[in-house]
Structure formats: structure tokens, C-alpha cells
């Protein structure tokens, strides 16, 4: 192998980066295991645990019944007693089946016990529309979780962050939800082979610009990046921020960006009304009101369940075009 070839950066798709992150956690932590629906023999319906059962055996990778209350409860009880579970909640929509275990047990146990319990548990769950999976398999419900004191919530927009956030989540001594996105599974980028952490609670400025800050969550980061070129053609130099972690939320990075650009558009795939974007806007106006040159705009899904028909889903999910349209309004173009 030539020297040049050796140094060529390795690219991995999002799905394989998830696998590698989980594999390295299992190698690193003897008390870690994976439990969830179809995680073993099937390697998950999304394929991101492929090969792990063979590599680690049935004592580390557990297929569970279709029992979300049981899965989350298992993680609460096991993490409070010396394990570091990695739980799989196949679709984020299934939160409805286990919200008591998430909201009333997992999130609150440490506080209710006066600090007496530590719950190092990671939950991987799949969000997002765009695959015609209709109203109960396509939602982005991250705001439900971010509203719960006691859990952390991260949303990787790319393969590098997916691996790094999974490792950071598994090393964290708190419950962490890693909210994945199903349309991103095939997206590849450079991913180092060795284990690394992407810090939880840190946003990243992924493109610097001077005219306006696009503050995007999850997969919408990629739509925001796709909006950069059409915006440049309109003479707009957009800064793009990947929020990465919504709980804790990196107020500082977002505020500093808006102080520089004086304008902001907040973008998420979740329903706009009551979405996490409202929190971002509130923080910006509280902390940087004097820097604002225009109202802060929000891009999100309309107030409707996710539709099935491709014709409807296409108009439902925010994209680069809707971001460009909102930016134009903000700038009066």
C-alpha cells in the first residue's frame, strides 16, 4: 500500500458510524450491553447493529420483546445498579409507549433520591420523516425530551458526530438520548477509526458567514448547508450552526453567532409550534436583543401529523427551499 493511499481519509456512512461507536463502547466498557427490539439476530431494522451479536454474543446484545416500558425500565434498573446499558427505542414515535419510564423514572430518579442514584444509560432512537412511513413512524419529538430535567438529548446530523456523540453519551454518567435520523443513514463523511468523543452540550459553527445565522437541528443542518449556495447567489453570506445537543443547549455559540450576523433563522424538522426552535428564539432575544436587526424566523413542519402520501410529505418536511424562502423574508429580499 502506498503512503498516499494509507493517509487517505476513511469515509463511513452514518449507519456504519453508529455501529462502530456502539462496538467501541462495548469493547471499552465491560458493564455495557445493548437491549432492544430486533437488535440481535436482525441487527436492528435500520441495520446499525449488524454483526454485533456475532462479535459480542448474546450476553451483551439482547433481543427484547416489543415492550418499550420494559426496555426503558430495564435500563433504569440496570443502570442504577452498576451497568451501563445502551437501549434501542426503534422509532422515536414509540416514546408514547414508555413515556412514564422516561419522564417519571429515568429522568427524575437521581433528583428524587437526592443524588443517591446514578443512571449511566444511553438510548438510541430513530426520528424523522421522508420515507413515507406516515404519522407514527416519522416524527421528530425531541422537544418532549428536552423539556425533561434529568435527561440529555443529542441529535447528530452526520456520521462523524453520530459516532462521537454515541461514545460521549455512553461515557456520560447521565441518561442520554441520541436522536438519530433515518434519512441520514446512507450519508457518508470522514470518520476516524479510533474512539473519540463529540462533546455533549457543544454546538458547532460549520460554515462561517456574515449576513445571517442559520441555526439548525439534526438532519436540517444538511438542508441548511444545501441552502448556502442558492443564498450566496442572492448575495447572502450565511453562517450555519449545527446545534448537535439540545439538552444541554449551547447558548453561547448561538448567541455569539447572532451578535456577529444580527439576524437568525432557526430550523428544525419537528412541528414548528411548540418546537425546540421557540426556546432558541427566546434565548436569543433575551441575551442579544440589542444586536437584532430583524425578527428571528423559524422554519419547521406545519401543525399536522406527518402525512403518508409522497405528494404531501414532500411539502410537509422543511428543506433547503423553505429555508431560502424564510431567509429571504427575514432579509426583505
Amino acid at each position: 500500500m502506498s503512503e498516499a493511499k494509507k493517509q487517505e481519509p476513511r469515509k463511513l456512512p452514518y449507519v456504519a458510524a453508529i455501529t462502530e461507536g456502539v462496538r467501541q463502547v462495548l469493547q471499552e466498557q465491560d458493564n455495557a450491553f445493548v437491549a432492544g427490539e430486533d437488535v440481535g439476530e436482525a441487527g436492528s431494522v435500520f441495520g446499525y447493529y449488524q454483526g454485533l451479536l456475532k462479535e459480542f454474543g448474546p450476553e451483551r446484545i439482547y433481543d427484547t420483546p416489543i415492550s418499550e416500558k420494559g426496555i426503558i425500565g430495564l435500563g433504569v434498573g440496570a443502570s442504577a445498579t452498576g451497568c451501563r446499558p445502551i437501549l434501542d427505542l426503534m422509532f422515536m414515535d414509540f416514546l408514547g409507549e414508555c413515556m412514564d419510564e422516561v419522564a417519571n423514572q429515568m429522568a427524575k430518579m437521581r433528583f428524587m433520591f437526592g443524588g443517591g442514584a446514578t443512571l449511566p444509560v444511553t438510548v438510541l432512537t430513530m426520528s424523522g420523516a421522508g420515507m413515507n412511513l406516515a404519522a407514527q413512524h416519522s416524527q421528530s419529538l425531541e422537544a418532549w425530551l428536552a423539556h425533561l430535567p434529568g435527561v440529555k438529548v443529542v441529535m447528530p446530523s452526520n456520521a462523524y458526530d453520530a459516532k462521537g456523540l454515541i461514545i460521549a453519551a455512553a461515557r456520560d454518567d447521565n441518561p442520554v438520548f441520541v436522536v438519530l435520523n433515518k434519512l441520514s443513514l446512507a450519508m457518508a463523511c470522514e470518520v476516524p477509526e479510533e474512539p473519540y468523543e463529540v462533546p455533549i452540550g457543544k454546538a458547532e459553527v460549520i460554515r462561517e458567514g456574515k449576513d445571517l445565522s442559520i441555526i439548525a437541528v439534526g438532519r436540517m443542518v444538511n438542508e441548511a448547508m444545501a441552502a448556502v449556495k442558492p443564498l450566496a447567489e442572492l448575495g447572502v453570506d450565511a453562517e450555519v450552526i449545527d446545534v448537535r445537543s439540545i439538552q444541554p443547549f449551547d447558548t453561547e455559540t448561538v448567541v455569539n453567532s447572532m451578535k456577529k450576523t444580527h439576524r437568525a433563522v432557526v430550523v428544525h424538522e419537528a412541528v414548528r409550534f411548540g418546537g425546540f426552535g421557540g426556546e432558541i428564539v427566546a434565548q436569543l432575544q433575551e441575551l442579544a436583543f440589542d444586536y437584532l436587526d430583524a425578527p428571528i424566523a423559524r422554519v419547521g413542519a406545519p401543525f399536522s401529523p406527518v402525512p403518508f402520501s409522497p405528494a404531501l410529505e414532500k411539502v410537509y418536511v422543511p428543506n433547503a427551499q423553505s429555508i431560502v424562502a424564510e431567509v429571504k423574508k427575514t432579509l426583505g429580499l
Binding site: 434498573g77 440496570a78 417519571n104 442514584a117
Partner: peptide, 30 residues
């Protein structure tokens, strides 16, 4: 509650305890 005594909490949610006990039992076996 008191973790040192193995008491994983009274619970304000009726039915809140069994999944957690099952998880602790899973942990014991693991």
C-alpha cells in the same frame, strides 16, 4: 429511597416499580 440499602425507591406512579426491579434483576444476572 436508599440505594445503599438496596431500596430503589417508593414510587408515585402506580406500576412504576416492576420494570425497574426487572432491570435490577437483569443487572444482577448480567
Amino acid at each position: 429511597s436508599n440505594i445503599a440499602l438496596g431500596m430503589l425507591g417508593a414510587n408515585g406512579i402506580v406500576g412504576g416499580g416492576p420494570p425497574i426491579a426487572m432491570g435490577a434483576a437483569f443487572s444482577n444476572k448480567f
